[in-house]
Design a protein around this nucleic acid. Structure first.
Length: 194
DNA sequence: CGCACGATTTGCT
DNA sequence: GCAAATCGTGCGA
């Protein structure tokens, strides 16, 4: 299980305005192996999730709800789809640069939630496929992996992927930057439709 | 080509 | 607590 190694790790991005470092406190695992209905790779390789099938330690970004960007770290070898969705973390460096984008949000909310996190780090959609270990990114894992990590069903995942059958959400217990668990909410479309 | 939905966040009441 | 915002992806014909 790789997730506990990433928890507590420091992800740094050297953006245009300055370096921003994040201590990862919450992730969700997504796999293309077996039946993982919640994974973007579930339907097989597409141009979209292509990077998930690539080598580990690369960035997989995706766009959702027409306005949000989320970031994953590919964590399985080339040819095997697997990624860790960065769901929450604490800004440990470059808070002023983060606030340029996130505004006056409470400190704990700066990178609380996948879309906020990507926004806080300033990760553009185009950074998908970027190496996390070189270039403008760097990832420092914990030397002593956190043993007592929290674990639960994944948040906001529709269908069977969001049930306890896939308890692949990992977080640091008690960390304030861990997003609250929220069950999947069915999307309702136009008004009056019924 | 057309249709429907999604690993969400934010603002108002 | 609920509803809106908003577009790329995936599948069927």
């Amino acid at each position: 299980m790789v997730a506990p190694l990433v928890l507590g790790g420091i992800l740094t991005r050297h953006g245009a305005s300055g370096p921003v470092s994040l201590r990862i406190s919450e992730v969700e695992a997504y796999s293309g192996l077996g039946d993982d209905p919640g994974s973007h790779a579930h339907r097989g390789e597409t141009p979209r999730n292509r990077v998930m099938f690539g080598p580990a330690a690369h960035l997989y970004t995706y766009f959702t709800y027409g306005m949000h960007t989320c970031a994953n770290i590919v964590c399985l070898p080339e040819g095997v789809a697997g990624g860790l969705l960065l769901r929450g973390g604490e800004i440990v460096q470059g808070e002023p640069f983060v606030r340029e984008r996130r505004g006056d949000a409470p400190f704990r909310d700066l990178a609380r939630g996948p879309a906020r996190l990507a926004n806080a780090m300033g990760i553009p959609l185009g950074d998908g496929g970027a190496d996390v270990l070189s270039g403008q990114y760097s990832l420092r894992l914990r030397v002593d992996p956190i043993v007592d990590v929290g674990r639960s069903a994944r948040t906001g995942v529709s269908g069977a992927g969001g049930t306890d059958d896939y308890p692949w959400r990992f977080f640091i217990p008690g960390d304030p930057t861990v997003s609250p668990y929220r069950r999947h909410v069915p999307k309702k479309r136009a008004t009056g439709a019924g």
